[in-house]
Simulated assay, not measured.
Amino acid sequence: MATRKITFVRDSMLPPQPAPQASGNSAAWVRANLLATPKDVVMTLLALALLAYMLPGMINWLFIEASWFGSDRSVCATIAQGGIQPNGWHGACWAFVEDRFAQFVFGRYPLEERWRVLLTLALFVALLIPVLMPKAPRKGLNALLLFVVFPVVAFFLLHGGFGLSEVETPLWGGLMVTLILSFVGIAVSLPLGILLALGRRSKMPVIKTICVVFIEVIRGVPLITVLFMANVMLPLFLPTGWTIDNFLRALVGVALFASAYMAEVIRGGLQAIPKGQTEGAESLGLSYWQTIRLIILPQAIKLVIPGIVNTFIGLFKDTSLVSIIGMFDLLGIVQLNFRDSAWIAPAVPITGLVFAGFMFWIFCFGMSRYSAFMERHLDTGHKR
């Protein structure tokens, strides 16, 4: 019986091929991203021309002609304005930032008690880093310490108690207030937003109605209104003689406001999960809460990481609105110092705003980069 020849199987090796052109160096990246098409070339040249026009003046104002040290406005004003700088001088007044930096960070917190703020910050960083590291052991214990134990310890450290002198919240301010409001808002809004999202998808009419009304009412008004209501209206619902600290009112208002937006972000992730996931969990005998905790939520949260971080970034920037109830965050304390007669100079306001904007950008950019890192780390569904 004759054997049939298999024609699609090679009986000889292919000849050696030249090595592929390197694509990981900087020149290849420039060709692929900046010079790939004539349109890219034109846009790249326009961008370079714009940078060449703007950068020299910015560098000159920010660094070269800037005033770095001093104790009053004279170092940031020209001779005609009563200062020591030449009449043609134009530069940033970093001396203002250097002189008031401690106030920008601590507000009016007593000088001799600021070690308590630094200790609280050190504890926060020490507990936060393991939580952010994907491969760190004992995540549950770290989360418990950060979100349950740490707030209690921080309260007694910052406010007073157990032998420490009391520091009233009106003395708090600056970056410290911004970080506290952001941390509490983030720590409360995520779990509360998850509960609101689950409640809005609930089949129980009362629970669903309460969640829908809360979300739509909070999302329908600006944060300034929420803070004003928390500051003015909340005490009216308390028994006679009871009062709530202004800073606590701000914490409640910020947390509730962020929770409503977080609920909609989480709900979007829940709706993106196929119904088969729930049916599969039910077929295995899992209860509702086991299905949500073990199957649905991990997938939903992974899908909406960009939306969650976007809400966190918006919350961090919105903390500047607490000035309406008499609290001064980083931006508020910077603006407050513009009125100081010792630093009234033309370059002071713009320098202070540049500093505040840069500080906000550092934290927001850090959250954005960590979000991108977590997306790459959790993107296991499409790997080959």
Rank of each mutant, 00 (worst) to 15 (best):
M1H: 06
R4C: 12
M13Q: 10
A19D: 15
S26M: 12
A27R: 11
L35G: 11
T37E: 09
P38N: 05
K39R: 14
D40T: 00
D40K: 00
A47S: 14
L51W: 10
M58T: 05
L62W: 03
E65F: 09
E65M: 04
A66V: 13
R73A: 15
C76G: 13
A77I: 10
Q81R: 01
G82N: 06
I84H: 01
P86L: 05
W94E: 03
A102I: 14
V105G: 07
F106C: 07
Y109N: 03
E112F: 02
W115A: 15
R116W: 09
V131S: 05
R138L: 12
G140W: 10
F147P: 01
F150P: 11
F150C: 08
F162N: 14
G163V: 08
W172N: 06
G173W: 10
L179Q: 07
I180P: 06
F183L: 12
S189T: 02
G199S: 13
R201S: 13
V206D: 01
V212F: 06
V213P: 07
G220E: 08
G220R: 05
G220H: 03
P222K: 02
I224Q: 08
L227I: 13
M229C: 09
L236Y: 03
F237E: 01
F237Y: 10
T243K: 13
L248C: 06
L248A: 14
A250E: 12
G253Q: 07
V254H: 02
A255C: 09
V265G: 09
V265E: 07
R267H: 13
Q271M: 15
Q271F: 11
A272P: 08
I273C: 03
I273T: 01
P274A: 02
G280W: 00
A281I: 01
S283W: 00
K302F: 07
G307E: 11
G307W: 11
F316W: 05
D318F: 07
T319M: 13
S320K: 09
G332M: 02
V334D: 09
Q335M: 15
F338W: 12
R339F: 15
R339M: 15
S341M: 13
A345C: 15
A347Q: 14
I350W: 11
F358T: 15
F360W: 11
W361T: 11
W361P: 06
W361F: 15
Y370T: 06
F373T: 03
R376S: 14
R384D: 02
